[in-house]
Design a protein around this nucleic acid. Structure first.
Lengths: 320, 320
DNA sequence: ATGAAAGCGCTAACAT
DNA sequence: ATGTTAGCGCTTTCAT
């Protein structure tokens, strides 16, 4: 039998109320009582039941994290930073992989609501506005337009695209192409391509859905390269850039002599283990920090902006 | 105001119990009542409060996941698989990064307990046996000896080490070395080195703590290579192997001609984007499946084994 | 400085 | 087939 508050009360010879006061350091307590109660808690190995607490309107201190998956290294690093920030603030993270699966995302959304989470951070977008509206908990989004009133935190996708284009142009590239995950509904990510074309107009964009297998992605890439014969390539994320580099190497061409490559994301993993790749780096830790800050503001009913755009930076490698 | 069960009851003109029965599809219900109640739920936008449910002894259906971090791609992929399995079984994952920080791990352990989680899966080990004993929820461990009665699921570390050694030996390696993260207390991971030395005895082991920065790791590696002049290298995880490859390339040596390298883990990320590396692959999806299966058994008070060892396989690359 | 009583939202006996 | 009552473990008035 697990000891509960009333057991502690009996053992300490006080009322449940007093025990509650000791736990929460609330109201007037005599040193003696505090001591007695703490002793009793020790002896019984008492642990407060958080569910019971949350029931009287106390917050659960749970935050839902909805992302397509954790195996993508960019999400992994972002989620890692989010967990650290949330823990600092006394919140616990519920991990929800939406897997590009609307019904799973919907189920998770309802579950989070049913479990009285204090808030939700979402980098996924499989559902319609109505689904998000139904949720009571405040939501903040990473890099997605979920609904008009849901704040978005993202890196400066447009400037990032511009920076990539300027970098390629400066290296003498004349015929670049853009390889992009399919511009999934209302993601500001497509701004990367727009920024690029702001500098180098009429650059062709090849869409390769992010959920294709690496093998299939490679084949599509191969075809694109053969057809377009580019001398420069901007991949909208680093793993796609890595794939492109593999193909180019295998085809007997040389990076950067024949084709220059620039990616996007700049995760610790890729920059550490694949420093060869030149890329545009998103400030992952800052993004996480802002996401949590803004969410906490919303939870506390403080005013927040509609959009928070964080600066990117060029991370030079040997692929340009 | 959020509608609750009693509001639905009033609106539908029935008792709270009946509403509860409809929600849980339990006991005898007339079609008519079901319809009335469901209509009322619709109209009020009613959502059950899971916390209140869990309070009467119902399970919370939360599982705690304790790992050092999510940014390490191996943990990321394992956690990803775990989330998928848990969701299938109707469980939600609470993400807990222990960060090699005992007090954070202890706090998480207590929090999980306080929130009445149904179980815990841990791949971290910063604490003593007593800390784990205090926890009520059943615990299953990945690759760590946490306490005598906590079941362990792991890949076949010993055979993996043997396989690595046999592979290097077969490639003609005469003077191999092992690079290993420090053999942190009671981890079966040290069995990788033991297995290797079962085949190639007296191979020197160089310990490089996993929490060193990549820069520092590189320096240590550099020194080790200079001193030992090996013609073969077994790294106890792939990222360390990747680092070694970088250094060897930079030093003007050639992999595999001058030094042959084999890693351990074989994550999708590394095999897809760094196919050059030969490695011993852990069956991540199966590990996740077994972890969840065994945990569910423990939750249901079914008997479980003390240890579950899953087979590894050789993944050939170009580094041997 | 401490206690008694009521109630958070829901479910589980035990009626009827 | 449905309702009444009590209670999960805790906190919160309101007393004293």
């Amino acid at each position: 039998m697990v000891a509960k508050l009333t057991d502690v009360a009996k053992r300490a010879g006080v009322s449940p109320t007093t025990v509650s006061r000791v736990i929460n350091r609330k109201g007037y307590l005599s040193e003696k009582t505090i001591h007695k109660v703490e002793e009793a808690m020790q002896e019984l190995g008492y642990k407060p039941n958080n569910l019971a607490r949350s029931l009287q309107g106390k917050s659960s201190r749970f935050i839902g994290l909805i992302f397509p998956n954790v195996s993508n290294i960019f999400y992994a690093e972002l989620i890692n930073s989010l967990e650290i920030r949330l823990f600092e603030q006394g919140y616990k993270a519920i991990l929800c992989n939406s897997e590009k699966n609307p019904s799973k995302e919907r189920e998770y959304l309802q579950m989070l609501d049913a479990n009285q989470v204090d808030g939700i951070i979402s980098g996924s977008h499989n559902l319609g506005i109505e689904d998000y509206r139904k949720v009571d908990a405040p939501i903040i989004s990473f890099d997605r337009n979920l609904a008009p009133d849901i704040p978005i935190v993202s890196s400066d996708n447009f400037e990032g695209g511009r920076l990539a284009a300027k970098t390629l142009r400066h290296a003498g590239v004349k015929h670049p192409i853009i390889i992009s995950g399919r511009d999934d509904s209302g993601s500001p990510t497509k701004r990367r391509g727009e920024g690029f074309r702001d500098v180098l107009p009429e650059t062709k964009i090849i869409h390769i859905p992010g959920d294709y297998s690496p093998i299939r992605k490679k084949m599509e890439l191969q075809m694109a390269l053969r057809k377009e014969k580019p001398d420069g390539l901007f991949a909208s994320d680093d793993t796609t850039a890595l794939l492109a580099m593999q193909i180019i190497d295998q085809a007997g061409f040389t990076v950067p002599d024949d084709i220059k490559i620039i990616g996007y994301d700049g995760t610790a993993m890729v920059t550490t283990y694949f420093p060869r790749l030149t890329t545009i780096q998103q400030p992952i830790a800052e993004i996480a920090q802002v996401l949590v800050e803004v969410l906490l503001k919303k939870i506390n009913h403080e005013p927040v902006d509609a959009e928070y755009i964080l600066p990117v930076s060029l991370l030079p490698g040997k692929s340009i």
